[in-house]
């Protein structure tokens, strides 16, 4: 099964606005979901320079941009994609 790609932005703005907490995402996921997720980091997704994308921190889940990302929002999005896939 294709894994869900999660890219966490760790640029200065995103890190300060909450990405530091998002780095615990792999521990927050249940082991089954964790196995179906591929994590990657980005120095800067380049989304914070324009207001149209919303507020930092930003996370991309399979290409979908999540603004003002929290552990809960990212987990919900991952589950939504996985459920749809099933």
């Amino acid at each position: 099964m294709k894994k869900v790609n999660v890219t966490i932005c760790t640029g200065t703005t995103c890190y300060l606005m909450g990405a530091a907490n998002l780095l615990t995402l792999d521990e927050a996921l249940d082991p089954c979901t964790r196995e179906q997720v591929e994590f990657s980091g980005s120095h800067c997704l380049g989304l914070c320079t324009s207001e149209e994308h919303g507020k930092a921190p930003f996370v991309k889940v399979d290409g979908h941009v999540i603004a003002d990302a929290t552990l809960m929002k990212v987990q919900d999005k991952i589950r939504e994609i996985l459920d749809r896939g099933e």
């Binding site: 760790t10 530091a20 792999d26 990657s40 980091g41 980005s42 120095h43 800067c44």
Partner: peptide
Amino acid sequence: GTSADIVARELGVGIKTDLFSFRGSGLPP
């Protein structure tokens, strides 16, 4: 981050962020 992206783009090399090695260290990875 932007500086690293510029250099990677100009030199045609990839960047890989080590997301979890230094988590909890108080600084971005």
